[in-house]
Design a protein around this nucleic acid. Structure first.
Length: 583
DNA sequence: GCCGTTTTCGGCCCGACTGTTTTCAGTCG
């Protein structure tokens, strides 16, 4: 059982304990342990084997015992029993807005409700409103919540959240009563999926800003509206929250609501350790008084807050409590890659396979975007659904690309279309083209597109097999996940990264917002092993070229610098790099 | 369930908002 699975189980134990009405701090201990484990880069199995769980903060005797059992046996009797004692539908019920563990427990204890369907029926029959602590409004909110859940999945892809957020941010920025404003939350941290949009603004007339926000176009309904915060549901199903504060409070509010929660806990603790107190309104020279302005430490920016806690400014992308404090303390935060550092993409399609535009059109669009190179890596013959190229068509395409390159010979800046293939990794790790064909290509991306159902060992072996081929420059979208749609196939990603380190194979960061694959959480490990990243759009049409920006943001989230990313190289250096493995 | 330069018990982040309450519990972030 790997780290992620263990973390998931601990998280679920936390939720189950909440539903049982257990001590909330015990509940939190499990949830904290889940976070801690998510943040450990090394496989738990080795930590357990070498008895190195001891000393990890937040894991006491009881949790160490349980984690050991999970890692060694893949099961945990305590968890099984707990799960058996609570109807599975209750956890799902807590996902309805406004329903927490206490209310779900009451619904179960008083009315015997064990599922969302039963809850809906009970609301329709007006049985919920009479319960202690419930009422007509709560009942209606539950009905609306269930309806909403059916209509929208609750999470949204990063790029669509930005598309919704940017015009709102712009209109806030132009409002005469707004002094400063920003997005916050997971959007500002560039998480791969977004639950809701958070906006922070400073103003001397907060009521005007709140009114403006709740009266904007495209609102489905207003969830909450107070003096300093409002919450609305937008027509595309996203919830948007706005908080308005005084300008001197703004940096604190922005930092607080940017999160993450785990990051904030450490920030707060650092304040306490220095005899200070940090909350969303300020940093105070007192352990108890929270609102006395005379005791306020003056900070006009987030940078000031970090400095007051003896830290470098931590970029929002890194605020996940995954090592940023240790680095910021020593002044060793990485100089993160910028999307403008990127010179091109090495995994893209044309209408020769399943892309929309012709080679000429793709080449011209990438040139106009300012790129120095753009690889055409259409699908290989086994991907016949995607109109994959056989050897004959591939050979013709190579010639055609050479022809196109002649058109750019006298261009104002160096530019080259690179020939390539996204070659299928067949079962067993064999590739869809023989080596002598691959050798003729500038760029070879190897990806899995079929037979996802093999065991973890087989899938891992498949990818390692591809990495061992000297003509394969990089592995494409290694987990095959489609965010909010399809889970990753079973895979030992650490083993694949190790093999890439060994063979000098690069790993793609697929910038398509449905993929963002490999996951940002693994790049620190890859970087330590010396594995380079390639940020690819995997574009199938012009619009996808803009994904480079999102890909770079995810790379930043993975702590990557310009040096860690191959496609920041100039055309000349890239062409040398493409020969490294073939020497 | 975890933790300890207030150390083996008594804390554990906390403020805004809603709805149900007539003084506060539950939820959320």
């Amino acid at each position: 059982m790997d780290n992620e699975q263990v973390a998931e189980i601990l998280e679920e134990i936390g939720t189950l304990l909440e539903l049982k009405g257990e001590n909330p701090f015990k509940t939190r201990a499990y949830q904290n342990a889940a976070r801690t484990i998510e943040g450990i880069h090394e496989p738990l199995a080795s930590l357990v084997a070498e008895d190195r769980l001891t000393g990890i903060k937040g894991l006491g005797d009881a949790l160490r015992q349980k984690i050991t059992t999970l890692v060694e046996t893949g099961k945990l009797p305590y968890f099984e029993e707990l799960k058996a004692s609570i109807p599975p539908g209750l956890i799902e019920m807590t996902e309805i807005p406004g329903l927490g563990p206490k209310k779900v427990k009451a619904l179960h204890d008083e009315l015997g409700i064990e599922s969302i369907d039963a809850l809906e029926t009970a609301c329709e029959e007006d049985r919920v409103a009479g319960l202690k602590g419930f009422g007509k409004k709560t009942q209606q909110k539950i009905i609306d919540g269930i309806e909403f859940r059916r209509k929208f999945s609750g999470q949204h892809h990063l790029h669509s959240a930005w598309i919704t957020a940017e015009p709102i941010l712009e209109s806030l920025r132009q409002h005469p009563d707004v002094i400063r404003c920003s997005v916050a939350g997971s959007l500002r941290r560039w998480k791969e999926t977004i639950g809701d949009l958070d906006f922070i603004a400073s103003s001397r007339a907060p009521e005007n800003v709140i009114d403006f926000f709740t009266n904007q176009e495209g609102i489905l309904n207003i969830v909450a509206k107070g003096d300093t915060k409002a919450s609305v549901i937008l027509e595309d199903g996203l919830q948007a929250d706005l908080r308005v504060v005084m300008d001197k409070e703004y940096p604190f509010t922005l930092a607080y609501f940017t999160g993450s929660k785990e990051h904030n806990i450490v920030m707060r603790q650092r304040a306490i350790d220095r005899g200070l107190r940090l909350n969303e309104y300020g940093l105070y020279k007192s352990k108890t008084e929270t609102h006395d302005s005379k005791l306020r430490v003056k900070c006009t920016s987030e940078e000031d807050i970090f400095r007051a806690l003896d830290l470098e400014l931590i970029p929002p992308e890194l605020r996940e409590n995954r090592g940023e404090f240790e680095a910021a303390e020593k002044g060793e935060l990485p100089n993160l890659v910028e999307w403008t550092d990127l010179r091109g993409s090495l995994h893209n399609h044309s209408n020769w396979s399943d892309g929309k535009e012709s080679l000429e059109e793709v080449a011209a669009a990438a040139y106009d975007l300012g790129c120095s190179y753009w690889a055409i890596t259409d699908h290989s013959q086994s991907s016949f659904i995607a109109n994959g190229l056989d050897i004959n068509r591939l050979t013709r395409q190579i010639n055609e690309i050479e022809h196109i390159n002649q058109l750019y010979q006298d261009a104002e800046r160096p530019y080259r279309v690179l020939s390539g293939s996204e070659v299928d990794i067949l079962t067993g790790g064999r590739l869809d083209f023989p080596d002598d064909i691959l050798a003729q290509l500038d760029v070879v991306v190897a990806s899995i597109h079929q037979v996802f159902s093999q065991s973890e060992a087989e899938m891992t072996k498949r990818l390692i097999g591809a990495a061992e081929n000297r003509y394969v420059h990089m592995l494409g979208h290694i987990t095959g996940r489609l965010l909010l749609q399809r889970d990753a196939y079973k895979l030992n990603q650490h083993a694949v990264i190790d093999a890439c380190a060994e063979t000098g194979t690069w790993i793609e960061l697929n910038a398509n917002p449905w993929r963002f694959d490999m996951d940002w959480r693994l790049w620190q490990y890859a970087k330590e092993k010396g594995v380079k990243c390639v940020i690819n759009t995997d574009s199938h049409r012009f619009e996808h070229q803009q994904y480079l920006r999102f890909g770079a943001q995810i790379a930043r989230k993975g702590w990557l610098t310009k040096r860690d990313v191959i496609n920041t190289l100039s055309l000349k250096r890239l062409r040398t790099a493409l020969l490294w493995k073939r020497k």
